[in-house]
Amino acid sequence: MAGTRKKLIRGDTRNLLYGLLFISPWIIGFSVFLVYPVLSNFHLGMTQYSGFGAPEWIGFQNYVTLFKDPLFWTSLYNTFYYVILAVPLGVVVAIGLAIAMNQKVREVRWYRVILYLPSVAPVFALSMMMIWLLNPRFGLFNYILSWAHIPAINWLGDPHWSKLAIVLVAQFGAGHVGLIFLAALRAIPPNLYDAASLDGASQWRKFRHITLPLLTPTILYDIIIGLGLGLQVFAPAYIMTQGGPLNSTMFTALYIYKNAFEYNQVGVAAAVSGILFIINATLAIVIFWSSKYWVNYHLE
C-alpha cells in the first residue's frame, strides 16, 4: 500500500518534470519575447533613449510630452476610427463569405479556394496592388465606379478616403475568418432549420434567430482577433500612404515605428507601445467579459 502511494507520487513528480521539460521552450519564449518586452516598454518609456548609449531615467516626462503632442492623439483617433470601422465590417464580410462558401452548388470547393486565396497573399504585396488599383486616374476601381457615373475618388490622396482604402485592404483577407465561420455554420444541426420551416419562418427570421445566435462564439473570436489586428495595423499604412495624407493614416503602430526607427525617440516609442498594450488588453478583457451577455454557447 505504502509502496504504491510512493510510486504514484513519484509518477506525479515525473510527469510534472516531463511536462515542464516539454513546454520549457514556450516558457522561455513567453518570458523573453512577450513578458519581457511588455514590462520593458514601461521601463524604457520612462527614459530618454536614442537607441545608442545608455537610457537616461526621466520619469514620466515622455508621457507628459506625448499627451501634449497632437500627433499622438491623431494616431489614437485614427487607430480607433480604423478599428471601429474595420472590425464590425470584417465580421459582416466574413459571415457573408461563409454564407457564400456554404451554397449548395457542386463546384463550391473552388469558390472556397478563390475566396480564401487573397488571405494567404502577403499584405505588403496586396498593398502594392491596391496603390495601383486605387490610382485616381488609371485605377480599375475608379474605372468601374465610373460605369455608375461616380466621379473619380482620390482614395489614397484624400484624407476622407484614405482610412477607408486601408479598411478595404483588410477585407481581402477576410476569407480566413470566413472559413472559420463556415465551419460554425456547418456545425448547426439542420433539423433546427427544418423545425423553423414547418413553423413558416422566413429566411431572414431563420438567420436572425437560429444562425446568428449560434455564430456568436465565432463572432467573439473574430472581434477579439480583429481588435488586435486593427489596433496594430501597420504594413498597409506604411506601404500605401506612409501615414499621409495630412496624417490621416498615421496609426499608432506607425507612430511607434517612426519614433523608434526614424526619429531615434526610443523612449517615447516604448511609452506609446506600453499605452497600446494597455488599450489592447483592456478592450480584449472588456469584450470577453461582455460575452456572457451576448454569446450563446448552447451548441457546445
Binding site: V38, N41, Q232, F234, V266
Partner: peptide, 21 residues
C-alpha cells in the same frame, strides 16, 4: 497571448524593446 498579441513574433507592441534587446 493569442488574443492580445495576435501577430508573432514581431508585432508593434513588443518591437521596440525586442529591437533594443
Amino acid at each position: 497571448s493569442i488574443f492580445i498579441f495576435v501577430q508573432f513574433p514581431v508585432n508593434p507592441i513588443t518591437m521596440v524593446p525586442m529591437f533594443s534587446f
